[in-house]
C-alpha cells in the first residue's frame, strides 16, 4: 500500500459514499425483496435516500475540517432519512464527529477507533446485540475485528480481507436466526430462512469500503 493511503478524510468519505451508492443500486432489488419477506420494504429506499443526501453535501463539506464535515453528514442523515436506518446511521456519524483530535491526520488506527466508537453508539441506541437478526450481526463482529487488527498492529491489507470475510459470514448467518429485535421480530419462526436486509446492506457497505482501501 502506498504511503499516502487515505483512511478518513472528507474526500475519502465522499468517494466512499459514491462507491457505496453504486453497489447498493446494483443490489437494490435483492435488498428490497429481503425486506418484503420479513419487514415492510422501506429499508432500501431509506438507504438510497441517505446516500443521495450525503453525496449532495459534497460542495458544502469538501473544504471543511473533518469534525465539521462529519457533523454536517450526521445531521443530514438524522433528519433526512427517518426509520430505523436514519436513527442508527445518524447515531454512528454523531459519534464519529465527536471523536477527539479529528483535525489532525487520521491514520488507520484512529479510523478504526472512530468506527468502533460509532458501532458502540449504534448498539446502545438500538439496544440490539449479535444474534438478533439485525444489521448489528454484521457491524459488531466487524468492529471487534478492527479492534484486534489495530491492537496487534496486523498487516492492514490482510486484516481488511479478513473483515470482508467476517461481514459476509455474519450476514449469511442471519438467515437461520429468529429475530428478536426490529420489525422482523414480529414474525417469530416465520422470519427463519431469510437473510436480514439490514445485515445485507451493511455487509455490502463494509465490502465496498474495504475493497476500495485495499486497492488504493
Amino acid at each position: 500500500m502506498k504511503k499516502e493511503t487515505e483512511f478518513m478524510s472528507v474526500n475519502f468519505l465522499i468517494s466512499q459514499a459514491k462507491n457505496i451508492q453504486k453497489v447498493i443500486d446494483e443490489n437494490a432489488s435483492e435488498i428490497e425483496a429481503l425486506d418484503q419477506n420479513i419487514g415492510d420494504g422501506d429499508h432500501i429506499f431509506n438507504i438510497q435516500r441517505g446516500l443521495k443526501l450525503v453525496i449532495e453535501l459534497e460542495g458544502t463539506i469538501k473544504d471543511l475540517p473533518l469534525s465539521k464535515a462529519l457533523n454536517t453528514i450526521a445531521m443530514k442523515v438524522l433528519s433526512g432519512i427517518g426509520g430505523s436506518s436514519g436513527a442508527l446511521f445518524g447515531t454512528f456519524f454523531i459519534s464519529m464527529a465527536k471523536s477527539p483530535d479529528l483535525d489532525k491526520d487520521v491514520d488507520f488506527s484512529k479510523a478504526c477507533e472512530m468506527i468502533i466508537g460509532g458501532v458502540k453508539a449504534m448498539k446502545e441506541r438500538g439496544k440490539a446485540d449479535v444474534g438478533e437478526k439485525t444489521m448489528m450481526d454484521v457491524l459488531i463482529p466487524v468492529s471487534e475485528k478492527l479492534n484486534e487488527i489495530k491492537n496487534n498492529n496486523n498487516e492492514i491489507k490482510q486484516g481488511l480481507n479478513e473483515v470482508i470475510k467476517i461481514a459476509e459470514d455474519r450476514m449469511l448467518a442471519t438467515k437461520d436466526m429468529l429475530a428478536t429485535k426490529g420489525r422482523a421480530s414480529f414474525l417469530g419462526e416465520r422470519a427463519k430462512g431469510h437473510i436480514d436486509p439490514g445485515a445485507r446492506s451493511s455487509q455490502l457497505i463494509i465490502d465496498t469500503i474495504c475493497k476500495s482501501v485495499i486497492n488504493q
Binding site: G41, D42, N46, L78, S79, I81, G82, G83, G86, A87
Partner: peptide, 12 residues
C-alpha cells in the same frame, strides 16, 4: 409524519 411506513426523524 415520516415517509410512507418509515418513522419520522428526530428534528421533526
Amino acid at each position: 409524519p415520516g415517509f410512507v411506513f418509515s418513522a419520522p426523524a428526530p428534528d421533526q
